[in-house]
């Protein structure tokens, strides 16, 4: 599978946040987006996810037979983990995970696996309101383990995570890449060894 961006430009409000962005990402590759605050990292991730439209340019997810995926197929081929963690204080962690699994169309049997992968065993019965920022982040990242999907879009995945969880995230992502997955992540810190980076911003 390949992700191909050609001449992408996007506006937020009245402002052009980035213009003429080209990149190509193949199976097993990760692209880390760097850039100052407001340089359009989140916007680019949301554009790739199909949550917002572009001003110009084209973005295609191409499967191994060379066919461009339609919007609905693309939704099914990607995980989007944004800033916002979609956790409610009135729901227990396990209820949140079940709901997230249902939204993805994932089998409920993968929930236990995700709980184990992200070390959430002690948290499942807590209500969302009691979680710390890092714990909320972990619950949010657990979505990645609920269903196998090719393209992962991660917005600031390292924020609020402690060292062991960072290592865990690194392991999960590396494993995903060796299995032929793709990752696009926005980060202020080096992520996944910064194998490939794209620096946004500096243009007014």
């Amino acid at each position: 599978m390949r992700l191909l961006a050609e001449g992408l430009s996007a506006v937020r409000g009245e402002r052009v946040v980035f213009r003429d962005i080209d990149f190509e990402l193949a199976s097993g590759q990760a692209l880390v987006l760097h850039g100052p605050n407001g340089s359009g990292k989140t916007t680019l991730l949301r554009v790739i996810a199909g949550l917002i439209g572009t001003l110009a340019g084209r973005l295609r997810l191409i499967d191994k037979d060379g066919k461009t995926l339609a919007d609905e197929e693309r939704d099914q081929a990607q995980h989007f983990v944004g800033h916002q963690d979609a956790i409610r204080s009135q729901l227990r962690v396990i209820e949140t995970l079940r709901f997230h699994a249902a939204l993805l169309g994932a089998e409920p049997k993968h929930i236990d696996e995700a709980v184990a992968t992200w070390g959430l065993q002690a948290l499942v019965d807590l209500s969302g309101g009691l979680l710390s920022a890092g714990q909320r982040r972990r619950v949010s990242l657990a979505r990645l383990s609920l269903q196998r999907r090719q393209l992962w879009l991660l917005d600031e995945p390292l924020v609020a995570l402690d060292a062991p969880t960072r290592a865990r995230l690194n392991d999960v992502c590396s494993k995903h890449l060796t299995q032929g997955g793709m990752i696009v992540a926005a980060s202020h810190e080096p992520f996944l060894g910064d194998r490939r980076t794209l620096t946004l911003g500096f243009a007014e």
């Binding site: 199909g50 949550l51 099914q76 990607q78 989007f80 916002q84 979609a86 997230h100 939204l103 993805l104």
Partner: peptide, 17 residues
């Protein structure tokens, strides 16, 4: 409104439903 604020709406829009 709360779903729009906490990102659940993004997940809904990307969901197969």
């Amino acid at each position: 409104q709360p779903d729009a604020e906490d990102g659940t709406l993004d997940l809904l829009r990307l969901s197969p439903l």
